[in-house]
């Protein structure tokens, strides 16, 4: 089973569900060449594994709680409505995986980090954002946000688009609280 809406479904229903397809306003070269090694498309198989991670974290495994509080997963909905998710990875000049990007650690040249566009080859995409376990929340829990400058907080993105992505995960038993950040007033 694919999480994506079938190909023959009118594009405008995808536009309605996940926002219109927009090209990222800025892309680093590496993001069009390399894909993250940790990349998954949301489908029955990946969702099954993901749910185990979600569940074991909620059940109280502190190591995953604290890792995913600081290293959020990136996600993007592509033009076909498929949802992709991965770690934010740092690669060397040949695209070899080095490590997931921790906060405030400078990425030394010539290494580069692979942001949201790399999940879909730098192409047009619908809404995107992050998935994280917020240890500071009361109670602590998993969140999905639209925190992606190039897909998530573009003009026209709405809380409903984010809620629809959360529902797609929910269809596999993966529950996220949605946290939506309004886009700027003007288009970026």
């Amino acid at each position: 089973m694919s999480a994506a809406t079938p190909d023959d479904q009118p594009l405008r229903s995808l536009d309605q569900a996940f926002g219109v397809c927009l090209a990222p306003s800025r892309v680093d070269d590496v993001e069009t060449i390399y894909k993250p090694k940790s990349l998954h498309r949301l489908d029955a198989e990946s969702a099954k594994l993901m749910k185990r991670l979600i569940d074991v974290t909620e059940e109280g495994l502190r190591v995953t709680r604290y890792v995913y509080s600081e290293l959020p997963l990136l996600w993007v909905v592509d033009g076909r409505g498929d949802i992709w998710f991965s770690l934010e990875e740092v690669v060397d000049r040949d695209g070899n995986y080095l490590f997931p990007k921790p906060s405030r650690v400078p990425v030394a040249t010539p290494s580069k980090k692979l942001g949201h566009p790399s999940l879909i080859g730098g192409e047009q995409g619908r809404i995107g954002g992050e998935i994280l376990y917020d240890t500071g929340a009361a109670p602590p829990r998993w969140f999905i946000t639209n925190r992606s400058g190039r897909y998530g907080v573009r003009a026209g993105r709405t809380p409903e688009h984010l809620a629809n992505v959360a529902r797609m995960f929910g269809a596999y038993g993966i529950e996220f609280a949605a946290d939506f950040y309004p886009p700027p007033d003007g288009a970026l």
């Binding site: 892309v27 580069k112 566009p117 992606s148 400058g149 950040y181 309004p182």
Partner: peptide, 18 residues
């Protein structure tokens, strides 16, 4: 800054606005 870093700054700015 790289495109990815500008993306981060944009996101943080909007989070602070929110």
């Amino acid at each position: 800054p790289t495109a990815s870093e500008i993306d981060d700054v944009l996101s943080v700015s909007l989070q602070l606005k929110a």
